[in-house]
Design a protein around this nucleic acid. Structure first.
Lengths: 157, 157
DNA sequence: CTCAGTGCAAATGATTTGCACCAGC
DNA sequence: GCTGGTGCAAATCATTTGCACTGAG
């Protein structure tokens, strides 16, 4: 958290931005919260601490957190957007249903990736592998993905 | 394409849906197009063939294509939504200097990735591997070795 | 013939923006 | 004190929906 706060401050000063009470509050709430939350949830949480903080400020700030590399933005399959603190995992799976993020640990995969880049003459700085799909829980809950499952979206019109 | 058309028809009949002129047209345009396109692009493309097709119909149809497992829906990091025919996965390298994007093809990597997801009970829809770094050209231009030993076995692929 | 499909326009919901006052640095 | 920040309300943008007519099976 101190780490992240430092990079947030750095980002701000590099961009001529100010560390306001609101930004700090949003930052703190965001970092202390477990898991992900959407702008609305962030707003609610933050307003418990300070009634006056506006929705616009939350939206504006979360964008800065994202630009600063502190927040990761997740677009869920249901169209919702949510954010979570950036972890250091560079290989993860995201459930498109519930938005859950699961880190993937496979050293061999990482190794192979580096080797692949190297073979093509690429100097690898960092990488980001994102696997999109269904987590075991959601897969079970849904029966089967991508099939005549239109009951939910079917309606008379 | 015939394959996909068949499953589209199957999906429709299984759900008491009709194969209308509009749906067929949208389906065909979607399948013939290279790469991804968003609803707006799809609408534009389809309207070149038939002025009367409405935005709503495109939206409604693309959803069916998605439910039928024919279209993959992608929520981009910029917030935009786009669709592409199911099937091709993506793995690419982005040069942080010149911005060039280079596709990476390594079947083994893809295979390993799928296997890794499977092992953790994840149903994989698609993945996005992004390697950030320097392309050979920029690395050279910057007078920096691409990587300890990549100069010698550099290859275009 | 019947019920689902369509185009249209209006509605929705998330996110953004213009503006006049407010506060870090 | 200068600049960027904020809250508010209005604006925007993608997507959805209600409706009355049309067309596929």
């Amino acid at each position: 958290m101190q780490e992240a706060l430092k990079s947030f401050k750095k980002y701000l000063s590099l961009n001529n931005l100010k560390l306001t009470r609101q930004r700090l509050l949003i930052f703190k709430y965001f970092m202390s919260d477990v898991g992900q939350l959407n702008p609305e949830g962030l707003l609610r949480g933050v307003q418990e601490l300070d009634k006056t903080i506006s929705r616009s400020t939350v939206y504006r700030t979360v964008k800065h957190l994202h630009n600063a590399g502190i927040a990761r933005c997740i677009h869920r399959s249901d169209g919702g957007t949510c954010y979570e603190p950036m972890g250091d995992q560079s290989c993860r799976m995201i459930c498109e249903q519930c938005g859950k993020t699961v880190p993937v640990r496979n050293p061999y995969l990482e190794c192979l990736q580096q080797e692949t880049a190297r073979q093509q003459g690429f100097t690898l700085f960092r990488y980001q592998n994102t696997l999109y799909g269904l987590c075991p829980d959601c897969a079970e809950r849904m029966g089967r993905p991508a099939s005549p499952e239109s009951k939910n979206d079917k309606r008379r019109f």
